[in-house]
Write a protein that binds this DNA or RNA. Structure first.
Lengths: 210, 210
DNA sequence: GTCTATAATAAGATAGAC
DNA sequence: GTCTATCTTATTATAGAC
């Protein structure tokens, strides 16, 4: 039979696409259940509320992503006493790119969701993220400092936020950007191509002189 | 008397703050008219619809900003045959920072609005912007190319979008970032301080080797 | 131009049969 | 777990008196 997927999963799949494309408040539960081909009431039955559905969509990604990042951090901490900035960033980049193999457009969907949750529902997400995954952030910052000992903690703080902005915003408009690149420069690049262009930009920015 | 400001202006002032802080669709006309202390019906009377109000809020900024940028571009084009990257960027930075003198928090409000309009109402704004102010963009890109002749048109395209993302996202969360900086690093910096930190990051990114 | 009252619509959520 | 029907609330927008 064609439709063996459980309702809960169908909702999550439909919701993440609509959220990433149109934003949280621009997406109604009616749109979600229609796209998922399930009953209107099932969102509230399975998730309690639209807000909890939003949380669930994001957590499904972080549950996979953060342990992977943590493992990469451990590897680097144990096996590389003097990592370069690029090696440190790869700790994030590899797991994020590998989302693309686990789910169609996984990389860009997660980054768009992150961007949306930072601007749309700001406070909740920031606290949730730092609360649940603060350890990973701390260890990452420590490695950046090791790779760029010239920078003060405050400067690393600012520059990592600049980096986050660069990545998140780029991913949020990556569809449009790839379209323009195709039309204007005859370049047909995928998300990996965008990341490849992002890395030198970010690396130079983080290690810039003051 | 205390309240001589015309209704239309009171609406624009209230709307821009709420839009920047909470987003377009998260802000209702009721919130706007309440904050502006005007009648509920006046938004539709003066602007026709909420959508046209959004346009008006953004246009009020661009009408001031773009001529200033254009003038700076002309100056640079005529008087400086070999501008540095930093001189080229200043063409934008100076007019954007000067918004802060014209209106309280003008700089961060405009940049937050820009960010919101890029993600929230995507297509409309992008077309509107390129349609009405495309000339300024073209001339700016030409100057960037002149300052960095090693970069291809496609690379400039990508890196300027990365830059836009960095700036817009930073400004969208600048309030929270300044709070954290104050709490964690005992730094009390204003928007100009944020911009001062942004510039080396961006300049290094744009001029990075491939 | 401003106001009240109200229309028209769409949203999130739930009760209760199956 | 699923479905229909419905409730409640909030929204944008407008009609019509002043």
């Amino acid at each position: 039979m064609a439709n063996a997927q459980p309702t809960k999963l169908k909702i999550l799949d439909a919701a993440e696409e609509l959220f990433a494309e149109n934003g949280f408040s621009e997406t109604s539960t009616r749109q979600i259940t229609k796209k998922a081909e399930v009953n209107l009431a099932s969102v509230n039955y399975h998730f309690g509320s639209k807000n909890e559905l939003i949380q669930a969509v994001i957590e499904r990604y972080l549950e996979v992503l953060v342990p992977n990042i943590s493992k990469e951090l451990t590897d680097l901490e144990n096996n590389n006493p003097n990592p370069t900035l690029e090696e440190v960033f790869s700790v994030f980049i590899r797991p994020i790119l590998s989302l693309n193999q686990q789910r169609k457009n996984g990389t860009s969907i997660l980054l768009q969701l992150l961007g949306r949750s930072y601007t749309d529902s700001q406070r909740h997400m920031r606290r949730f993220f730092l609360g649940n995954y603060g350890d990973v952030v701390t260890r990452f910052v420590a490695l950046v400092y090791q790779a760029q000992p010239g920078l003060s903690a405050s400067e690393i703080f600012w520059r990592l936020h600049f980096t986050l902005g660069t990545v998140v915003f780029t991913m949020a408009s990556s569809g449009a950007l790839m379209d323009i690149a195709r039309a204007d420069f005859d370049e047909d690049i995928a998300i990996e191509g965008v990341v490849k262009r992002l890395i030198p930009f970010i690396a130079a920015g983080v290690s810039a002189p003051r």
